[in-house]
Design a protein around this nucleic acid. Structure first.
Lengths: 88, 88
DNA sequence: GTGTGACTACAAGTCCGTA
DNA sequence: ATACGGACTTGTAGTCACA
């Protein structure tokens, strides 16, 4: 499981900090694309067919979305998935 | 463009077929990058700290990895996450 | 218009094996 | 060296009421 990942992957940084960075990076990308599209969290959530609170948690880096979720986001935001993982 | 065509066709396809396309797309990208790095599934799995059977299922499009998993893959494969979501 | 904790269902990911 | 499966634990998806 992920405990193994931690043991192996800790080179110079703390594993939990890296994980947070990744999630927050995606969250900020989502927020940037959402605002660029002129959408509120509520309207984005409605177009995706998910709850607004999920979008909220996502943008704040509290969620670790799957590639399927990223793809749904990209569709609604009219961007590529790669734009949502920018900086990673 | 391919992505645009896909986005249009989406309205006429079953949702599960789209999901399969996304998962398989990631799987093929992973396989391509892994072979380019000269790694076996076993060595990739070991370096990531995940089970080898997971890598197998991933490359065959049977898995829906999270962004954290994609990031771990990218690190070990020495590529960017965007390279793993190429074509999406 | 957004942040948050608690919640259930189901998928992510493990560990064992087979071929 | 890889595909594939079963049974298992952990975590994500997705929701809700309330701040």
């Amino acid at each position: 499981m992920c405990t193994l990942v931690r043991r192996i992957k800790v080179h110079h940084m703390r594993a939990s900090a890296m994980a947070d960075d990744v999630r927050l990076g995606v969250g900020l990308n989502v927020r940037r694309c959402r605002l660029a599209a002129g959408l509120t969290q509520a309207s984005l959530a409605e177009r995706m067919g998910v709850d607004r609170s999920y979008v909220s948690g996502l943008e704040r880096g509290h969620r670790n979305p799957t590639v399927l979720t990223l793809w749904h986001l990209a569709e609604v935001l009219n961007v590529r998935v790669r734009d949502l993982v920018d900086g990673l």
